[in-house]
Amino acid sequence: MLNIGSHLSISKGFYVIGRDALSIGANTFQFFTRNPRGGSARKIDIEDVNALIKLMTENNFAKILAHAPYTMNLCSAKPETREFALNTLTDDLKRMEYLPNNLYNFHPGSHTGQGVKAAVEQIGTALNTAMFNDMTTTVLLETMAGKGTEVGRTFEELRMIIDRVERNDKIGVCLDTCHVFDAGYDIVNNLDGVLEEFDRVIGLERLKAIHLNDSMNPIGNHKDRHQKIGEGYIGIDAFRKIINNENLRNLPFFLETPNELDGYAKEISALRNLYFE
Rank of each mutant, 00 (worst) to 15 (best):
E97T: 10
L255T: 09
E83I: 12
L261F: 00
H226S: 12
R206G: 01
E197L: 14
R19P: 01
Y185V: 00
N35Q: 02
D169T: 14
K208G: 07
D91M: 08
G148K: 02
V194A: 01
F14L: 11
E80P: 04
K223E: 12
F181L: 05
D20F: 02
N59G: 08
N133S: 15
T257V: 05
I53A: 10
K170H: 15
R200G: 05
I243Q: 02
F106V: 04
H211P: 06
Q114N: 10
A126D: 01
T88M: 04
A145Y: 06
E83P: 00
Q30D: 04
F132S: 14
E205K: 15
E246G: 01
L22I: 12
R272T: 05
M135N: 13
G230W: 06
F32C: 04
P69K: 03
G184N: 11
C174Q: 11
T125R: 07
D237H: 05
N133F: 11
E260K: 09
K266E: 13
A145P: 08
I219Y: 00
A119T: 02
N128F: 06
Q122N: 14
H226P: 13
A26L: 05
F276T: 13
N73Y: 07
A183C: 13
I229M: 01
I171M: 11
N273C: 10
E256F: 03
D48Y: 01
D199I: 00
E256C: 08
A145V: 07
G109T: 01
G220H: 03
T138V: 14
G184T: 04
N259H: 15
D199A: 02
I219A: 04
V194F: 05
V116F: 11
A118I: 15
K63W: 01
I210N: 05
E256L: 06
R159Q: 15
P100G: 09
A118Y: 10
H211Q: 09
